[in-house]
Simulated assay, not measured.
Amino acid sequence: MSRRRVRPDELDLWHQVARTAQRMRPEEPRSDDRAPEPMIRNPRNAPVQARLEDFQIGATSGRPSPAHDVLPAISERLATAPVSMDKKAFQRMKRGKLVPEGKIDLHGMTMDRAHPALTGFILRSHAAGLRLVLVVTGKGKDRDTGGPIPVRHGVLRHNVPHWLRMPPLAPLVLQITEAHLKHGGGGAYYVYLRRQR
């Protein structure tokens, strides 16, 4: 659908209305020489910058490009997470010196089977007064077919820390970290539970 041109009589009518209209903000300076800014609908009423800066083709931008906001690997995120438990016990746990009191093996399960199994195991372990449990997820298979959207390596390995930080497990879990090599390394997690109250 093409837009029609404004007729001269319509333009004259518009100028008459504009001359008789009162300004909403008379304290702001009038700028008749500036082109009107396009209206942008914004449902959240956030300030929107409607006017773009002048840019010449072939010129470089004055601003540096933003850093890539790529989510770090799960091992990096867990390694940089703050320590919520006793630091000496945490170091002993990371070195594999603490022996897990309970263990669940989710290796080979689908997500719809693994999530309720993990939830039930953590709830039972906390009710039994256990402090350190081992959750084995496996490292996962590489299922990336080379498509445009990358597929994460190890679905359970990436989802288990997320599940442990969601209700009903979040109030029970004090610390999550990758297991020592003798307990499964990158394919398992130590989950340190809070004391019963």
Rank of each mutant, 00 (worst) to 15 (best):
L123D: 03
V99P: 08
A170C: 00
R92S: 07
P29K: 12
Q56Y: 02
L169H: 02
L11D: 12
S125Q: 14
A114R: 01
L11K: 11
H162F: 04
L156V: 03
G120R: 15
D54R: 07
E37H: 11
K97F: 14
L118K: 01
H158E: 13
P161W: 11
S2P: 00
L11C: 01
V83G: 14
V155N: 15
G58R: 06
G154K: 09
L134G: 05
E53P: 00
Q196M: 12
R77L: 14
G108A: 06
R63I: 10
M109A: 08
L71D: 10
Q196Y: 09
M166V: 10
S125W: 05
P167H: 05
E53H: 05
A79R: 14
T145C: 04
G96V: 06
R194K: 14
D33A: 14
L172G: 03
F90K: 07
T119V: 08
E101D: 01
M24A: 12
D12Y: 08
D32F: 09
P161T: 06
A79T: 06
E53R: 12
A128D: 09
A128C: 00
M39G: 07
D54V: 04
D54L: 10
D86W: 00
S65Q: 09
K87E: 13
P72L: 14
M111N: 11
P43E: 15
P26L: 15
L156K: 00
R63Y: 00
T110F: 13
R124K: 08
R5W: 08
D86V: 05
D69W: 03
A170E: 03
E27K: 01
P116D: 07
P72C: 15
N159T: 00
